[in-house]
Design a protein around this nucleic acid. Structure first.
Lengths: 118, 118
DNA sequence: CTCGGCCTCTACACGACGTAGTACTACTCG
DNA sequence: CGAGTAGTACTACGTCGTGTAGAGGCCGAG
């Protein structure tokens, strides 16, 4: 799957933060602090689409982009991918469980418990 | 922290699989299927050291390399790093818990339970 | 018909990584 | 003691991903 670059992630963040699909121009406006050329934003949106992170639909002459999956799903995928890198998933998982903070352990526990009940 | 390249990972895998620190030559022999020049292996070992993934100590004229941390620790770190990418850690964690397979959920549960008991 | 906006295509610089050569040093065997 | 061998450091080059953007084409509004 592979990680994203810095700008790519910023743009994904913007799109993840909005429910509605945005046009390149709108994204450009929202990322104004970086003072990017409009074409830069378009290029990145295009690449993200090609990579499967975004879907786009026509809106007049413009495209509207929206994320293919939620940020949470993406993060979970990244975590699983990291996990795949080890020969011993069990050891890595255990290690992970030991490493997360207490409150996060709590969240995990809760999620797992709910899982069990279904 | 950043991920590793393909060759870098292969080499880390070899070192992670051995308890004793290895020399460049030894690593080269163990990775023989790729038919790499000895200098290639050295260069990569050197880069990994510079990046903090390996520690090296002298052994005569040669260096012996060993991983700075276990593979499990590395994987756990990668997972945490992915987790850091989200605004809502709780949601991502929950999602993750729901995504792992049943047996892995079991492992996680167990690790978390043990944590609790300490 | 013309202008402004939006698109597509193409491009370039830079850093990471795979890959390796060259040159220097020092032990080892005859 | 001289030559070969192993090991090191330094340098280099091609490729790919990513940030960044220009040039030019198409189309709807006025």
């Amino acid at each position: 799957m592979k990680g994203l670059g810095e700008l790519e992630r910023s743009i994904m963040d913007i799109l993840w933060a909005h429910n509605a699909p945005l046009t390149a121009r709108e994204v450009g406006r929202l990322i104004a602090d970086r003072d990017l050329a409009p074409t830069t934003v378009m290029t990145v949106l295009d690449r993200l689409t090609r990579k499967g992170f975004l879907n786009r639909t026509r809106d007049g002459r413009a495209w509207r982009y929206k994320p293919g999956e939620s940020r949470d799903a993406y993060v979970a995928e990244l975590m699983l991918e990291a996990l795949d890198m080890t020969g011993d998933r069990s050891a890595a998982l255990t290690r992970f469980a030991q490493t997360v903070s207490g409150s996060e352990a709590e969240i995990l526990r809760k999620a797992l418990t709910e899982l069990e009940e279904e």
